[in-house]
Deep mutational scan, measured.
Amino acid sequence: MIINNLKLIREKKKISQSELAALLEVSRQTINGIEKNKYNASLQLALKIAYYLNTPLEDIFQWQ
């Protein structure tokens, strides 16, 4: 199981879903879906999320 901390980290950094989506060149709905565990981010997208949030990938998506 993967624990998804994207919403928590994004909100801590005061970045909206729309802002993050624009940086990543995806839709806001994609970010929303990832945060609600409706969609799994591809490895490429997960790495981009970590880069733009300046946060280690394993802090955003944790295996349990």
Rank of each mutant, 00 (worst) to 15 (best):
K13F: 09
A41Q: 02
E58W: 08
R28Q: 15
N5M: 06
M1S: 07
Q62I: 11
K13N: 11
I15S: 00
N37P: 00
K13M: 13
L45I: 08
I9Q: 05
F61C: 06
Q62C: 10
K7G: 07
S16D: 04
L8T: 15
N5T: 04
N4L: 09
V26T: 07
A50I: 03
L20H: 00
Q17F: 03
A46K: 11
L6V: 07
I15A: 02
R28M: 12
K38C: 14
L24V: 15
I2D: 04
N4D: 03
R28K: 13
I31A: 00
K14F: 08
L57N: 03
Y51A: 09
M1W: 10
E19A: 13
A46N: 03
R28S: 12
Y39C: 15
L43M: 12
K36H: 13
E19S: 10
Q17R: 07
A50E: 04
P56H: 05
Q17P: 03
N54R: 09
E35R: 01
I31Q: 00
S18Q: 12
E58L: 09
S16E: 04
K14G: 15
L53C: 03
T55K: 04
K48A: 08
E58D: 13
L43S: 07
L45K: 00
E11D: 08
L6E: 00
E35M: 03
A21D: 00
D59L: 10
W63N: 05
K13S: 08
W63C: 12
L8N: 13
I60E: 01
E35L: 03
L57F: 08
A21V: 05
I60M: 05
L23S: 10
R28V: 15
A41Y: 05
Y52Q: 07
I60K: 00
K14N: 14
L47K: 14
E25C: 15
Q62H: 09
T55Y: 05
I3N: 10
I34G: 00
G33D: 15
S18T: 13
I2K: 11
L24N: 00
S16G: 07
I9A: 06
L43K: 13
Q44N: 12
R28C: 14
L53W: 03
Q17E: 04
R28L: 15
I34Q: 00
I34A: 00
K48Q: 08
L20G: 00
A22I: 11
R10E: 02
I34C: 04
L6T: 01
K14Q: 12
I34N: 02
Y39F: 15
Y39R: 12
A50P: 00
P56V: 03
I60P: 01
I2Y: 12
E58H: 13
G33Q: 14
N5C: 11
N37S: 09
I15R: 02
R10W: 06
Q62N: 07
E11V: 10
I49F: 04
N5L: 06
R28H: 11
T30H: 11
K38G: 07
F61P: 00
I3P: 06
E25W: 05
Y52S: 06
I34L: 09
A46R: 10
Q29C: 14
P56C: 07
E11F: 05
A46L: 12
K14S: 09
L53N: 01
L57A: 05
Y52G: 03
N4W: 08
F61Y: 03
A21L: 03
R10Q: 02
I3F: 10
R10S: 01
I3Y: 10
L43V: 11
N37D: 07
N40A: 13
Y51Q: 09
S27K: 08
N5E: 03
N37M: 09
G33I: 06
S16Q: 04
K13T: 06
L20E: 00
Y52L: 12
E35S: 03
L45V: 06
E35I: 03
N54S: 12
D59G: 06
N40M: 13
P56Y: 04
K38L: 10
W63G: 05
A46E: 02
Y39E: 11
E35A: 04
N5F: 07
Y52D: 00
S42W: 03
N32S: 14
I3M: 13
N54L: 04
A22L: 12
A21H: 00
V26E: 04
Q44G: 13
S27H: 06
S27W: 04
E58V: 09
N40G: 14
E25I: 06
I9E: 05
I15N: 01
S42F: 02
N5A: 06
D59A: 10
A41N: 01
I60R: 01
T55H: 07
K7T: 07
N32M: 13
A21T: 04
I3E: 07
M1I: 11
E25P: 04
L57R: 03
T30N: 04
R10I: 07
G33V: 07
N37R: 08
D59S: 09
L45P: 00
I15L: 12
E11P: 01
Q64H: 12
Q64F: 05
M1Y: 14
A46I: 07
R10G: 02
Q64C: 12
S27T: 10
N32L: 08
W63F: 10
Q29W: 12
S16F: 06
K7M: 07
A41P: 15
Q64I: 06
T55F: 03
L6D: 02
S16P: 05
K14L: 09
L53P: 00
S16Y: 04
L20M: 05
I31H: 01
A50S: 12
A46D: 02
K48G: 06
K38T: 13
R10A: 03
I2A: 08
I60W: 01
L8S: 14
